[in-house]
Amino acid sequence: MDHESGDDTLASAGFLRVPDEQGGRAARRWWDANAGEYLAEHGDFLGDVDLLWCPEGVRESQARLLGDVAGARVLEVGAGAAQGTRWLTAAGAHAVATDVSHGMLAAGAAATGAGRGRVPLVQADARALPFADATFDVVFTAFGALPFVPDPHRVHAEAARVLRPGGRWVFSVTHPVRWAFPDDPGPGGLTATRSYFDRRPYVEQAADGRVLYAEYHRTLGDHVADLVGAGFVLDRLVEPEWPAGHERVWGGWGPVRGRVLPGTAIFVTHLPAAG
């Protein structure tokens, strides 16, 4: 458990290097504290029993990026309140949800208690999954885990370890191009102000310098190198276009810049079959 204490009032924010240990452990505390607010703001769009890949509105029910999940053993990493895992269970999968945040999993447990589908919930760091080798047919995450750790290669390595040969690993992240632009859904987000190659994370700090939140940037090349290094084969890179008539603003995502700049990258990959 993180025993840090102190005033968590935001004192400063920006792109700067911080010790990996501090940045990597900030996510659990931040999501525990903000789970309720996040779900109150976005819960209607996420749905109670649904798998939403991105703010552009791509849903697994139409996209089928995970393939045929009926009867498959599926692991969701960074599952939040487990909406996606509940949808997979309803679709016939044997699905398990993991998240580092007790606050998010508690929201998932509350949804289960309200009769929205019973699924196993496991609190775990995506870099050290508590499952045996070759346990799952599919592992996935929709904006979970990867953006919040300084060492995403460990997440890919764990996904590879718990997947059976031939298994599928699918994940969505903020499109790396976005990091060159201000996080503004309006016209202010259309002019590049930073180098795409500046890999310093976005960090929020308290007055005493403690890291309250950290989000990490990887270029497209970095993501591919991490995947190849973990033994995966890249099958598809999906860059969803902003759909006509979709006017919802979610953080830096919205129709103004969504119509001209990619907001999400979805990587569809697999492990080579044995033999």
Rank of each mutant, 00 (worst) to 15 (best):
Y202C: 11
E21C: 07
F197V: 10
L212Q: 14
P19E: 10
E158K: 08
G92L: 03
A265F: 05
E56N: 12
G36L: 12
S172M: 00
C54I: 06
P262Y: 05
H94S: 14
T141W: 11
V18Q: 09
Q205I: 10
L212E: 05
P147I: 01
T141D: 01
A81H: 15
H217A: 02
E241D: 15
L88Y: 14
A128V: 05
V100D: 02
F15N: 07
D226Q: 14
L51M: 12
T135E: 14
Y213R: 14
P176V: 09
L39G: 08
F267Q: 05
V49C: 06
V177E: 14
G186K: 10
T112S: 11
G245T: 10
H42R: 14
A274M: 11
D7I: 09
L46C: 04
R164H: 00
A274D: 04
V119H: 10
H246L: 08
T85S: 13
D235V: 15
A91C: 12
A110M: 09
A91T: 08
G258H: 03
G71N: 04
T141C: 13
T9C: 13
Y38T: 09
R64N: 13
V228T: 11
G221I: 06
I266G: 06
A145P: 03
G24E: 08
S61T: 13
Y213I: 01
H156I: 11
F148E: 04
P185M: 02
G144C: 06
Q205E: 04
A274N: 04
G117F: 06
A79D: 03
P150F: 02
R116F: 10
P130K: 06
D137W: 13
G117V: 01
A33N: 07
G92T: 11
W242F: 01
S12I: 04
L46A: 15
A192C: 13
V138N: 02
G275H: 06
A82F: 00
T269Q: 12
F181R: 07
A70Q: 10
W169V: 12
L75P: 04
R259C: 06
P19D: 06
Y213K: 02
W30T: 08
D20S: 05
A142H: 00
D44F: 11
V139D: 01
S12H: 07
S195L: 06
T219Q: 03
H217I: 00
E241S: 13
V74G: 01
Y38D: 09
G258N: 07
R29P: 10
A230M: 09
V139P: 00
V155Y: 04
G6H: 01
R259Q: 12
G167V: 03
R164T: 08
V233E: 14
H246G: 09
R218P: 14
